[in-house]
């Protein structure tokens, strides 16, 4: 995906070659090794914050454990705080931790996640949310058809598979944690619930930042009804056909269920398994957005809705009509260059 060619002057020649040239050291590159060492500093121990980048790898000692406390991503050996992952050093007063470049999603209460039902149990669902352990969705933490105030009865526990069956996707919020570290989810809001009318695009979780809103509506030039994007903090992104509710709410994150019209709940649409009619133009827009998301992920660029819009405008200008929803490597490089002003032609 992302590989590093040499640091030699050669690297300024753009390689439009689709085959990534991986790092391969020849004898004459020895002389460039020197400045690498200076830049990332073997001697970052002791002098924290001084070395420009503060990048360490596993097994590298950072500082003395007498003066500092060890945080995540470190361990103590021979009175030294030693890194256990490759990443950047982060220091809060006397606490040293190392944040790995990428890692599995670590949930926090209030996070918005997208998950997939893997098991239906006794008054609970097991949900795969791309975390270390499966999440739990209790029957008591969902809204059932009939309104928020509706009481759950024994019959509901028997009909659980009618609401959410194995393989169904849903958007939910992290409610709490169990003693063993597994997370408990809830969908007690109109924003949350079963997902349909779209496609799932998994990404490395570190590319999704915590934002004010994780529901985005890309307005109509992007497909006839626009495209809705839900950025799950666990790295899963849901791209779906824009809904009326979302248009009216101006992307304030209304009505994921798609059936949320007027009265909001009541409709059986919330747990429906049937997609709405999606026009070919809408489908094209959805998969183009998904291609864009993959493109940004390929170059380690954190996602945002404005980035997607800008990218979509670029790509539709370039194409004129709708042909393919795939983005070629050259187009991708140019798009990133034009939209973000970052030259990526050197790294692939």
């Amino acid at each position: 995906m992302f590989s590093i060619s040499t640091r030699a002057p050669l690297s300024s020649i753009p390689t439009s070659d689709a085959v990534p040239t991986s790092y391969h050291r020849a004898a004459d590159e020895r002389k460039y090794q020197m400045d690498i060492d200076e830049e990332y500093g073997e001697g970052s121990s002791g002098e924290l914050g001084a070395a420009g980048k503060n990048i360490v790898g596993p097994g590298e000692s950072i500082t003395s454990s007498k003066d500092y406390m060890r945080g995540h991503g470190t361990y103590v050996e021979d009175e030294q705080v030693v890194s256990s992952v490759a990443g950047t050093i982060e220091r809060v007063n006397k606490l040293i931790s190392v944040k790995p470049l990428k890692s599995r999603y670590t949930p926090e209460v209030g996070d918005l996640v997208i998950g997939r039902i893997v098991e239906v149990g006794s008054s609970r669902w097991k949900v795969d949310a791309n975390a270390r352990q499966d999440a739990v969705l209790m029957l008591s933490s969902v809204n059932l058809p009939g309104g928020v105030q509706r009481r759950k009865v024994e019959q509901d526990a028997l009909k659980m598979r009618e609401f959410l069956a194995e393989g169904d996707l849903l958007v939910a919020e992290v409610q709490a944690f169990f003693g063993d570290g597994a997370m408990s989810l809830h969908t007690r809001s109109l924003k949350y619930g079963k997902l349909r009318n779209g496609l799932l695009q998994p990404l490395p979780p570190h590319l999704i930042r915590r934002l004010k809103s994780h529901f985005h509506h890309l307005p109509p030039p992007c497909g006839p009804t626009g495209v809705d994007v839900i950025l799950g903090l666990n790295g899963w992104v849901w791209v779906s056909a824009g809904t009326k509710a979302a248009v009216e709410g101006d992307g304030q994150g209304q009505g994921v269920g798609g059936g949320a019209e007027g009265d909001g709940f009541g409709a059986e649409g919330v747990y429906s398994n049937v997609n709405d009619e999606i026009t070919p133009e809408s489908r094209t827009a959805i998969s183009t957005i998904a291609s864009l998301i993959r493109l940004f992920a390929k170059y380690h660029i954190p996602l945002s809705d404005s980035l997607l819009l800008e990218g979509y405008q670029w790509i539709s200008k370039r194409r004129g009509g709708a042909e393919s929803t795939m983005i070629s490597d050259e187009d991708g490089e140019r798009l990133i260059g034009d939209v973000l002003g970052v030259d990526v032609s050197v790294d692939a």
Binding site: F2, S3, I4, R7, Y23, I36, E39, Y40, K53, I55, G57, A86, G87, T88, L101, H206, Y299, H300, I301, P302, L340, V342, D347
Partner: peptide
């Protein structure tokens, strides 16, 4: 190799 790559990605993420 790991350090050089990590440095580049960190830079890319902040640049972006």
């Amino acid at each position: 190799y790991v350090k050089e790559r990590t440095g580049k990605v960190v830079q890319r993420m902040s640049l972006a």
